[in-house]
């Protein structure tokens, strides 16, 4: 039975699988990186929804509020986002260099060029 109350986790899993699928199935390096980003974002969502307490408010002490969401996972995700950005930046830099050297960013074409090099 599907618990609709936990739909956010279904979203996480859907995104995660989408991301992984894109990484595996796409030969275009940019698309691969996009897939990687989707995959990372799914985990960020996972953390964010984990920290949310139903009915809770932002964890700033104020009169009239009893329930607060857990801020820690959200804070952790700041770091994870930074990591994701850094990864994407590095990956894009590499893709630029690959494009300059090989003239393409399609994996199968790169592989073909490399195979030709090996043969010669």
């Amino acid at each position: 039975m599907i618990e609709w109350g936990l739909y956010n986790y279904w979203v996480v899993i859907f995104l995660m699988m989408t991301g992984l699928y894109v990484v595996i199935a796409r030969g275009n390096l940019i698309k691969k990186i996009i897939g990687l980003n989707i995959f990372q974002v799914s985990v960020i969502m996972f953390y964010v929804s984990m920290g949310k307490v139903r009915g809770g408010t932002a964890p700033i002490e104020a009169a009239g509020f009893e329930v607060y969401s857990n801020p820690l996972p959200h804070v952790l995700m700041l770091t994870a986002i930074v990591v994701g950005v850094a990864t994407s930046a590095l990956a894009l830099a590499l893709v630029v260099r690959i494009k300059e050297t090989y003239g393409t960013i399609e994996e199968d074409e790169i592989r073909r060029i490399e195979a030709d090099e090996d043969a010669s």
């Binding site: 992984l20 990484v23 390096l29 691969k32 990687l36 995959f39 990372q40 985990v43 996972f46 953390y47 984990m50 996972p73 994870a80 990591v83 990864t87 590095l90 990956a91 590499l94 893709v95 260099r97 690959i98 050297t101 790169i110 490399e114």
Partner: peptide, 24 residues
Amino acid sequence: ALTAAIQYLVMGTIGGTFILLGIG
């Protein structure tokens, strides 16, 4: 080296993200 690095990056990021998920 560039293609090796990007392959490493893709695999490594998947690995790192799985670790993050597990820790979560």
